[in-house]
């Protein structure tokens, strides 16, 4: 089982966390066209390779965080801290590897 490094609790068995899937930015709900909104709701890159994804430390500290995982090798990159990096808004602040 994958060890997922929660930024607060440290590495934990993946089963102790909740997987939240591919992150994607939320369009402005008052401006988005149906096409854009439904692209946000339904369409996914689903890459065979590096994927930015959300995790939730549901059985621990309850932190939502994102990390990057390679969907073909299982490799992980440094998790991102909550607050300055948020799921649903994959904005880089320059600290990621």
């Amino acid at each position: 089982m994958l060890l997922v490094p929660c930024p607060v609790c440290g590495p934990k068995n993946a089963a102790e966390l909740t997987y939240r899937g591919e992150t994607h930015s939320r369009p402005d709900p008052n401006q988005a066209t149906p096409e854009e909104w439904r692209s946000y709701l339904y369409l996914r890159d689903n890459p065979a390779g590096w994927l930015r994804e959300g995790w939730f430390c549901s059985s621990g500290c309850r932190t939502f965080f994102t990390l990057e995982r390679n969907t073909t090798t299982g490799e992980l990159r440094e998790p991102l801290l909550p607050g300055n990096k948020v799921a649903g808004r994959p904005i880089s602040d320059g600290t990621e590897p």
């Binding site: 939240r20 959300g54 939730f56 549901s58 939502f64 909550p82 607050g83 948020v86 799921a87 649903g88």
Partner: peptide
């Protein structure tokens, strides 16, 4: 509960 936490942490920290 999770839903509310999610919105608070990810969209409105």
């Amino acid at each position: 509960w999770n839903w509310a936490e999610n919105w608070l942490q990810t969209e409105h920290p």
